[in-house]
Each structure stands twice: as structure tokens, then as C-alpha cells.
């Protein structure tokens, strides 16, 4: 029942989680695939293939970090002074990581995680019932995976109604996943969402602006996505369609898991043949300043 059941790899987890392990089960990707690894480094690399999938009854926060330019890797950033964005994103124009959220909401296993038996997800062929709450996270239908081709878009007029809609949707057992604009949600609202998701056994995927990176939250996990540069074949004069958007996904914090420095990183990109999200084999490198911030953040 423990999300990180590999007690050999994480000997401290059992003691940490204790009897409440069941309530902390937020992902199934980590627990499923790893073998006897004894070192933190091998633990990390062995999981680069499989992206952890959220399990029903949990709420996760996703932040897309677009504050840093990729062309200036020498920006002065130290672990003690974490955030000095080159172009500060105001609260109004932030982007929600819709591609990743749609992929997680679709619930199909990634193409690289072929080790999982297909019978584990018998319901992946039927259309998923997913609500998209808030205009900020409304997707564009032609880019959605086939399983999400019957979305319900909700447009709450204000924050209060948005919180109510998120709560009502998460509490409904008929819903598979809820993707919501969670900007402005405080600790109470996220606690409410987490309790509602636990009651309805639904998956909550909350998109928040990067300015709320340090906001208090009761969500099971918080992730940060940082855009990566494309492959080297892309240049300002490229005319091929070979370049695909990609991100570093970074698990900033997760309930029940001791914060470790840079331990949970994946590299994902849109597969340019299928359009699906693909988890890269190697975690890859991130921009220098982002790594520095991650170090400072996960310690707190």
C-alpha cells in the first residue's frame, strides 16, 4: 500500500509513513517497477523510465516554470537566494501545463513503461470523464488524446465558485479526473480538495502559477515543469517538424516522502510521431539556475 514500497531502497520510509501509509499513496509508478537497488543514485536512475502515475483519491499540483531564459545559464542564483526571475511572470499571464495534465488525466501508461501488464488498466479504452475547471486550463480538442475526446469544460465566474466546483467535481465518484485552475487556492481550499478527492476516489490535477511555488498546500505532491531546449537539430532556421516540446518534471515535494535533494526528476517530451507524452530514458540536464532553486526549495 505504500507508494514507495521499496524498503531496501528507502529504509527510512517505513518508519516515516507508519500506519498512515495508505493515505499517502499518491503514485503507483514508483512502487511498481523498481528492483533491488540500494543506493539513492540508482534509485533515481531506475525510475527515469517510468513516470509515477497519480492514484485515485489524491490531489497534485503542477507548476509550469517559465521564468527563466534558457539562453542565459550564468544567471546569478544561489541556493540561499532562490528566485530571481529574469522576466517575472505576473499573476495574470501564466500558462498551465495542459499537455502533462491531459496525459496524466488520460490515464494510459506511457509508451516506455511497457513493463506494466496491460491488464492492470482494463478501462483505458473507454472515454475518460474529465472536467476542466477554469478557462485557464481549457484544452484544445485536436491536441487531446483520444481517451479525453469528451471533455466537460467549466468556467466558474470567481474564486469562490471555482473552489466549490473543484470540490464538487472531486467528490463525485463518477469522475475520473479533475483538471483545475488552482491559482489563489489557500491551504484550506487545497485541504478541502484533498479530502473531496479522497472521498470520491478521483484524481485532482491542479495547475498553479509559478508565483505560488511556495504557497502552503495540502495536496499530495507538488511538481514543477521547466521547459527544455529542443534537440540539437533545431535551430532558428529549422523547417522540419522534428522538434517537439519537452519539459523537466521535478517532484518538489510529496506527502510522506522525505525531501531529498534533486532525487525525483524526469524528462518528458511530446513524441513527434504519436503525439503522446514520452518519458525520456535519461533524466537529462536542467538549466543551472533551476537546479539551484530546487536544492534550496526542497530543503524547506
Amino acid at each position: 500500500m505504500n507508494p514507495y514500497t521499496d524498503s531496501t531502497a528507502r529504509p527510512d520510509l517505513e518508519a516515516l509513513l507508519g500506519s498512515t501509509a495508505a493515505s499517502f499513496q499518491a503514485f503507483e509508478g514508483l512502487a511498481a517497477s523498481h528492483s533491488n537497488t540500494t543506493h539513492a543514485h540508482t534509485y533515481r536512475t531506475s525510475h527515469a523510465h517510468t513516470f509515477p502515475r497519480p492514484t485515485p483519491g489524491s490531489v497534485h499540483e503542477w507548476l509550469l516554470d517559465t521564468n527563466h531564459t534558457l539562453t542565459s545559464p550564468t544567471s546569478p542564483t544561489t541556493p540561499t537566494t532562490p528566485t530571481t526571475p529574469t522576466t517575472p511572470t505576473t499573476s495574470n499571464n501564466w500558462l498551465a501545463p495542459i499537455t502533462m495534465l491531459a496525459w496524466l488525466a488520460a490515464g494510459t501508461p506511457s509508451s516506455t513503461s511497457s513493463t506494466r501488464p496491460s491488464s492492470a488498466r482494463p478501462s483505458s479504452t473507454r472515454p475518460r470523464r474529465v472536467l476542466w475547471i477554469g478557462r485557464r486550463v481549457w484544452p484544445y480538442l485536436p491536441a487531446l488524446p483520444r481517451a479525453l475526446h469528451a471533455p466537460i469544460l467549466v468556467d466558474p465566474p470567481d474564486l469562490r465558485q471555482r473552489i466549490w466546483a473543484i470540490d464538487a467535481a472531486l467528490r463525485c465518484p463518477g469522475v475520473d479526473a479533475v483538471v483545475a485552475d488552482a491559482s489563489g487556492l489557500d491551504l484550506t481550499a487545497t485541504r478541502r480538495a484533498q479530502l473531496a478527492a479522497a472521498a470520491g476516489r478521483t484524481i485532482g490535477l491542479l495547475a498553479r502559477p509559478i508565483s505560488e511555488l511556495r504557497a502552503l498546500s495540502a495536496a499530495c505532491s507538488r511538481w514543477r515543469l521547466t521547459p527544455t531546449t529542443s534537440t540539437s537539430t533545431c535551430s532558428p532556421t529549422t523547417t522540419t517538424t522534428d522538434c517537439a516540446p519537452g519539459w523537466h518534471a521535478e517532484l518538489l515535494r510529496c506527502k510522506g516522502v522525505r525531501p531529498t535533494q534533486g532525487a525525483h526528476r524526469w524528462r518528458v517530451r511530446i513524441d513527434h510521431e504519436t503525439g503522446d507524452v514520452r518519458v525520456a530514458d535519461d533524466p537529462g540536464d536542467r538549466p543551472v539556475e533551476a537546479q539551484g532553486q530546487a536544492r534550496g526549495r526542497t530543503a524547506g
Binding site: 471533455p151 466537460i152 467549466v154 466558474p156 465566474p157 466549490w164 463525485c172 465518484p173 463518477g174 469522475v175
Partner: peptide, 24 residues
């Protein structure tokens, strides 16, 4: 689950207004 799903849509459309809950 199907009934619950439609009850949720009813609740959303009643409270927020029918134009604010839509399909594509």
C-alpha cells in the same frame, strides 16, 4: 457512477449557469 456523473453536471449547470458548463 454514471448517475453520479450526470448529477454532478446538473449541479454545476444549475449553480454556475448552463453556459458555463459545456462540452466540446
Amino acid at each position: 457512477r454514471n448517475q453520479r456523473w450526470h448529477e454532478l453536471l446538473d449541479a454545476l449547470a444549475t449553480r454556475l449557469g448552463p453556459a458555463r458548463v459545456c462540452t466540446l
